[in-house]
Design a protein around this nucleic acid. Structure first.
Lengths: 249, 249
DNA sequence: CCAAAAGTGTTTTAATTACACCCATGC
DNA sequence: GCATGGGTGTAATTAAAACACTTTTGG
């Protein structure tokens, strides 16, 4: 059917963010507490309206900066988080107030200081994704678990699955690390995201042998005890060949 | 920032379709001719507005049926096309008339009879994707090439790349085949989508040896001359392990 | 008989796995 | 010394690539 630009149903368009990081050996996502109805007091993914003159990726980068202080990754720089579009959610009933289409984005960030949402720390937190995806029961603090607002559990679940599969064939796992990192730190990222244990020796050989994945940064460090480890930076490669293999079962 | 449901910029939301098929050894996409401004007379991807009470996937399935007569694939049935969300395009200037966010979908279909767009065959066609993505020069008919309308070249390019990578690790290539097909026909699908030549002997061993990819349908056929080939149906597997490997270079 | 496509067997090569083992530091 | 994590070597297994060869049809 041809466009009819004069008669179309009006939509609100938002961006929602799945911001992932690895803290204390666990894959964590950023959650904010809702201050208003619907789902008042419940945890949700950060997000907000796309402005009239703004591209979708700009809106996502703006929300990310507002919530975390992170800039989206500029390939010319080496700071900031990786940011990519995830998927779009548009069920007519996903927001009870009106028709809202949400373009979800996925951000991967190194471990950060505690988050801030409007400066109020109690309204934003990093939480392990299994905790946020739990539909009932009790959390680690003994409080009853309430599911995420709206369809955010689905969005988070899709984002986690994207991250899990994408670190297989791309160098994106380095987005979870600081600028300089050791092979062991990178391995612990894979272990946290996949939820498996990897053989440190084979992992070391694999990542150092994959062309373009890592470049030596020069120094060494002892962060974990034991023998000092070489420091690396992310190499230029984005696609890994051969890919990292996620163990079965 | 919290939602402010009373004041949000209004958007139009559309779905655009990248409908791919394999015809005469070439990867082809469905294109429709625009009847009105802007880009009047130019080729574009099929698409249309999302209705007020419709989910995004419903809207995509409706547009697909309107343009091709195909039903979107119901896993319980064995007819219809594969349909999945591709990505969302929302540059403020992508449509000169107003702010339009388009949720692009990717459909994979077996070779079909000639398309119909409002019953008028001259306003819809299957065209090789390289032809549609060509930015200038002359087509096979000697006519000067005009780029696709709006940002549809980008959308088509993203859809083709998705299809190329997805047939590596999923059984989606069977979506390009009729219900029953031979190993040779499946191989020609891979060759057309990837644009490479594959070794028929290794390919045969690989696909018949991958559990769940193909199930024998019983009969044999001679469609290409030569020795009759066994007929197969798509098996239940969606993820291939090990994956099909796209040759390098 | 010959061309053409289907299908099987075999050899070579590369990658993954599962380890044994050594290295360099802090305590 | 000894625990801890970093890093190298090596053999067994597995999959991919290259290609010789046989099978079954149509003309």
């Amino acid at each position: 059917m041809p466009y009819d630009p004069s008669a179309f149903p009006p939509f609100a368009v938002t961006v929602d963010l799945v911001v992932l990081t690895v803290r204390r050996h666990a894959l964590c996502a950023l959650a904010v507490r809702r201050g208003e109805s619907p789902f008042q007091g419940r945890w949700a993914l950060p997000g907000g309206f796309v402005r009239a003159d703004e591209d979708l990726s700009q809106a996502a980068a703006r929300e990310l900066a507002e919530e975390t202080g992170l800039r989206a990754h500029d390939p010319a720089q080496d700071n900031g988080a990786h940011l990519e579009q995830l998927a779009t959610y548009g069920d007519p009933k996903r927001d009870p107030r009106m028709r809202v289409v949400s373009v979800a984005h996925l951000a991967l960030a190194p471990d950060l200081p505690a988050p801030r949402a409007g400066g109020d720390a109690s309204n934003a937190r990093w939480a392990p994704v299994e905790e946020l995806l739990q539909q009932n029961g009790y959390g680690r603090d003994g409080e009853p678990v309430a599911p995420l607002a709206f369809d955010h559990a689905q969005i988070l679940s899709d984002g986690v699955e994207r991250a899990r599969s994408k670190i297989e064939y791309s160098s994106l796992a380095t987005a979870f690390c600081p600028t300089e990192f050791t092979v062991g730190e990178l391995r612990r990222v894979y272990e946290a995201v996949w939820g498996v244990a990897l053989d440190p020796r084979n992992f070391h050989r694999k990542v150092t042998g994959t062309p373009g994945f890592l470049v030596p940064a020069g120094g060494t460090t002892t962060r974990q005890g034991g023998r000092p480890a070489q420091l690396f930076r992310a190499g230029g490669a984005t696609l890994l060949n051969p890919p990292m293999l996620r163990p079965e079962v």
